[in-house]
Design a protein around this nucleic acid. Sequence first.
DNA 1: CTGTTAGCGCCTTCAG
DNA 2: CTGAAGGCGCTAACAG
Lengths: 346, 346
Amino acid sequence: MNKRPSIKDVAARAGVSMATVSRVLSGDYPVADETRQRVQRAVRELDYVVNAHARALHGATSKVVALVVAEVTTPFFARIAAGVEQQATEANRLCLVCTTHADPDRELDVVRLMREQRADAVILAGGVVENDDYRARMRQYAQGLEDAGSRLVLCARPSLGPDFPAITVEYENVGGAHAATTHLLTAGHRDILMIAGPAGLTTSDQRVEGYRTALTAYGRPIDPALISHGPWDREGGYLRMRALIAAGARFTAVFAGNDGVASGAMAALREAGRRIPEDVSIVGYDDVPSAVDFNPPLTTVRVPQEELGRTAVKLATQRSGEASGREHVMLGTHVVVRGSVRAPAP
Amino acid sequence: MNKRPSIKDVAARAGVSMATVSRVLSGDYPVADETRQRVQRAVRELDYVVNAHARALHGATSKVVALVVAEVTTPFFARIAAGVEQQATEANRLCLVCTTHADPDRELDVVRLMREQRADAVILAGGVVENDDYRARMRQYAQGLEDAGSRLVLCARPSLGPDFPAITVEYENVGGAHAATTHLLTAGHRDILMIAGPAGLTTSDQRVEGYRTALTAYGRPIDPALISHGPWDREGGYLRMRALIAAGARFTAVFAGNDGVASGAMAALREAGRRIPEDVSIVGYDDVPSAVDFNPPLTTVRVPQEELGRTAVKLATQRSGEASGREHVMLGTHVVVRGSVRAPAP
DNA sequence: CTGTTAGCGCCTTCAG
DNA sequence: CTGAAGGCGCTAACAG
């Protein structure tokens, strides 16, 4: 195994100084054509590649953006990741992906690692429990990352205010829920069950809020018994829907906190002999790719995940001069109408 | 904005030398307890973090593993990524994710970037068109990465032979297809349509091979007219199934090259008025999470994606001494029986 | 246009 | 147990 060549070896072989090699490598510097050729040939012959670390040791930054999420398997995060990766590539950056499993300790570790790496952007994505502890943590991260020359980006979660030193990219979460609920209301439904996510989680709470404002705007009262909080995966949707049916809850439509919940709820409804959409209408949230395969295809709310990821990187990597580092962007959502909603039986 | 502190600042504050700070930081070196305390306090007060690049400049490696895939959005790759990320974290490594969009040029770029990064493992995952060009490319990567001190891992794709300097982690792809086809045969089906992926792609070809061997083992002839090659996403499945139905193809069961194809094929069948599984049985491949939401739930082949990713990292990061760097692991697959197969109508 | 000379921040001998 | 000194590979002044 040959030891990997350094710029010095290239210089020797090309018969020039290290500085010259460095110059032709970086490109943006006048070098005689003939010299350039010689260097390039030496590079090729030695199969030389720069050492990114040595290079990064100089400038403050390191050409990598980091994405920090709770999990990578869910379609929601996978698509944010896709957007981040795309735009990172476009911005000539590498993309680091880390998971926290929603564990603050792990999150702290990860952010420290990112500081060590001098990543030029750290994107924290996904809903959170927005308590004092959270705010304190974020403030700490912002400080540490800024010192390390990185930009902090809050993605798919609420802004921490215009004074907080972070870029925020969120989506019309309340608005989407409002629209989804209104979609059911205008179809004629009045008793709408909401199977939400865990109470306190921003993503879920905002969707509940949209549900409430829509009902209120329609002159309907809010019935707390019709709002269920809990784990928002398929199983959570299944179990809670089954329990609600067993408890004799009265409703003609369901607003599921996300498509996973919708999937489970639909299974439970079917088991109980309720047909969709003849007996019960249902709307989901997120528009996961498989929503189209549901039975029937699920009407749901489209969230621009890739766009969220892309925008996060775009804002974070634009030249620092013309950016405040506190931009705040809100991306739109909209209802995708498929086959799971119908007017209630008279 | 404070300039980030260096080890020198910590040393000054703690009233010791840089060497001492370095020692307490790395941990594995005798340092007087009192001194250690002082240093640690200085670290805390300054909120100091090491510079990963300066550190990497020394050792050959850099504590990152890189995953290179065609896309990140498909559940198949997302789950491999999850496995890689998990095990990387466990092995105290960072996880870099890059996509190539199946473009060899882009792939070349990415591998070069990984060499620059001195990643200690580069995992190329997913099926490929295994031609001479591919083999030559891989040989080139292997060479370059070895020189850079990295390990090359081929994941979820065929080995390039025991002499090829790479770790390989694949799964029983032919076997899974064989089992899936046999599952249909034993249910009584004789005319089984195979909607495969693109011809030449290893993943798809192996599945076709399993289909063939199963039929042959059952004493059935292979009817080329029943094998369709093409894009293996939902749309590809939909369009081809629709065309096949229109062309009057005769079959009682379908083996879809993957679950996406199965999803599209099911939609086309339903549109044509064929009930599943009463009129037509269908088996997919991959067992994507949403397979359970299909109508009916899809019988399919489980591929251990997380395990593939985890194993790749595990093998690549085990201490070099006790590893040849040419390990070859084959992980199993199995049929997951759900509701999409039934005996053919008599 | 090109070469020389300092570091970047850290680790690692080698001496105390 | 601790400190001083050299160098990892590269870039960025500063001279020629």
